[in-house]
Simulated scan of single mutants.
Amino acid sequence: MKVTTTATTNAPTVRRGTGGSPLLTADALPPSGHFIAGEFRAGLGSETQTIVDPCSEATICEVSQGTADDVDAAVAAALEAKNAWGRTL
């Protein structure tokens, strides 16, 4: 006896759009930079990462890459804030 089964999947299919409006514009993004100690700050380095709309392959914006000094500032701000945040409910 031969048994035949058919597999089905609910995995989404992703297709590249053809024309039309972009998924996201630079105006829809939050301020750029690193969010450290409750504010957005420019990165200390000069390197950037291009953010691309996968639908249109258009550049949305450039964001600064973090440096070791940016990480140190973020960690210091987190350590300073941890006691106050630990008391919140």
Score class of each variant (00 low, 15 high):
Met1Glu: 11
Met1Cys: 00
Met1Arg: 00
Lys2Arg: 03
Lys2Leu: 10
Val3Phe: 00
Thr4Cys: 00
Thr4Tyr: 01
Thr5Gly: 02
Thr5Pro: 00
Thr8Cys: 04
Thr9Phe: 01
Thr9Ala: 12
Thr9Lys: 02
Asn10Cys: 04
Asn10Val: 02
Pro12Thr: 11
Thr13His: 06
Arg15Ala: 15
Arg16Gly: 13
Arg16Asp: 15
Gly17Lys: 08
Thr18Asp: 13
Thr18Lys: 05
Gly19Ser: 13
Gly20His: 08
Gly20Met: 12
Gly20Ser: 13
Ser21Asn: 12
Ser21Lys: 15
Ser21Ile: 15
Pro22Gln: 02
Pro22His: 08
Leu23Glu: 09
Leu23Ala: 14
Thr25Cys: 00
Thr25Arg: 06
Ala26Val: 05
Ala26Trp: 00
Ala26His: 00
Ala26Asp: 06
Ala26Cys: 01
Asp27Glu: 15
Asp27Tyr: 01
Ala28Ile: 06
Ala28Leu: 11
Leu29Glu: 09
Pro30Thr: 11
Pro30His: 09
Pro31Phe: 01
Ser32Asn: 04
Gly33Pro: 08
Gly33His: 07
Gly33Lys: 04
His34Val: 11
His34Gly: 08
His34Glu: 02
Phe35Thr: 07
Phe35Ile: 08
Ile36Met: 09
Ile36Cys: 07
Ile36Thr: 12
Ala37Phe: 01
Phe40Val: 01
Arg41Trp: 05
Arg41Glu: 10
Arg41Cys: 05
Gly43Cys: 04
Gly43Ala: 06
Gly43His: 02
Leu44Trp: 00
Gly45Leu: 10
Gly45Arg: 02
Gln49His: 11
Gln49Val: 15
Thr50Glu: 14
Ile51Asp: 12
Ile51His: 09
Val52Phe: 11
Asp53Lys: 06
Asp53Phe: 09
Pro54Gly: 10
Pro54Asn: 09
Pro54Tyr: 10
Pro54Trp: 09
Cys55Asn: 11
Cys55Ala: 15
Cys55Ile: 14
Ser56Gln: 05
Ser56Cys: 11
Glu57Arg: 09
Glu57Gly: 05
Glu57Lys: 08
Glu57Thr: 14
Ala58Leu: 06
Cys61Met: 03
Cys61Arg: 13
Glu62Met: 03
Glu62Ser: 07
Glu62Tyr: 08
Glu62Cys: 02
Val63Glu: 01
Val63Cys: 05
Ser64Met: 03
Gln65Val: 15
Gln65Gly: 02
Gly66Arg: 14
Gly66Gln: 13
Thr67Ser: 14
Thr67Lys: 10
Ala68Arg: 06
Asp69His: 04
Asp69Trp: 04
Asp69Arg: 07
Asp69Gln: 12
Asp69Ile: 00
Asp70His: 03
Asp70Phe: 02
Asp70Arg: 02
Val71Gln: 03
Asp72Glu: 10
Ala73Tyr: 01
Ala74Cys: 12
Ala74Pro: 15
Val75Gln: 07
Val75Trp: 12
Ala76Ser: 12
Ala77Lys: 02
Ala77Met: 10
Ala78Lys: 03
Leu79Glu: 15
Leu79Thr: 13
Leu79Gly: 14
Glu80Asn: 14
Ala81Lys: 08
Ala81Arg: 08
Ala81Phe: 05
Ala81Cys: 03
Ala81Tyr: 06
Lys82Asp: 03
Lys82Phe: 05
Lys82Val: 13
Lys82Leu: 09
Asn83Lys: 13
Asn83Ala: 14
Ala84Cys: 01
Trp85Leu: 15
Trp85Ala: 11
Gly86Gln: 04
Gly86Leu: 07
Gly86Asn: 10
Arg87Thr: 13
Thr88Glu: 03
Thr88Pro: 09
Thr88Gly: 01
Thr88Met: 13
Leu89Arg: 06
